[in-house]
Nucleic acid binder design. Sequence first.
DNA 1: GCTAACGTCGGA
DNA 2: TCCGACGTTAGC
Length: 271
Amino acid sequence: MHNVSCFNSCCLPDNSPTRSAKIPNEPLRPSLKRSSHPYSLSHYISTPSPAVDVKGLIQPSPAQEQRPAQPSKPRRAPSWPDMWESPSGLHLAHAAELLMRAGLLALTPATTEQASGSGPEEDEEDSSGCSTDFQPFLGAWFPFSPALFPLAGFQMGGGHWRSTAVGAEGIEGLVAEGYSPSSLGGGGAGRRKRKRCGECVPCRRQTNCEQCSSCRNRKRGHQICKYRKCEELKRKPGGPGFDSRVSGFDLRGSDFTLGLAQERSNGTLDG
DNA sequence: GCTAACGTCGGA
DNA sequence: TCCGACGTTAGC
């Protein structure tokens, strides 16, 4: 049990009515699912930045840097999400990613040396906890801590990070990182399915409610649980606000968030 | 081939 | 506008 808002199934009580044996299609990047951090959200919120050694968060200590690589586990080539996962940096990384998707943050590419000097060796340290304790609160604090993100980006950002707000550059960057053009909703002849973002609150839910019409009518409806429906996919492609990718920031005060809070208070929300 | 689930359409 | 049904796509 990590905290009250942990979404991982490990934190669900065995007798939880919402805990289903089968968890369909988890789109989350593993790195986002298995991260933990020494500081909770409340720590970031309540502690003025000088009290939190941001530099220390971003630049691992020698001890951390000297942590031996795990030989039994072949390391894949680092991609930018990994590079952003310092021992304590995922909150920043996640925040920065969301900001960049929203076009609110642009990063100057780090030097090759910087890009290769950190990141891939640290990501394993984020392996045992939950990263979702802050999620519903993103909108409450990200926009007010802009200085953190360029800093984090300069130190940890791998290579070609840049704003993905609009245009071919953003798509190109995503494609380069393994997102297929089809999954991005672009290109390709005919319609292509978009994929769940894996980062919004509904996506992070791991269990179906079994109560909504979609759950009850799954056989014929072919629809995912309403409470797990990706916020991105709810938007019409090409419609207003689409591709602004600001779902993470719209959560505050949204109906969904309010419902989420209510669910949590009722103990019906997973994690 | 099976299953999950996105996209679309038509009815309420 | 919402909801259900169905075709279709995509992953396994």
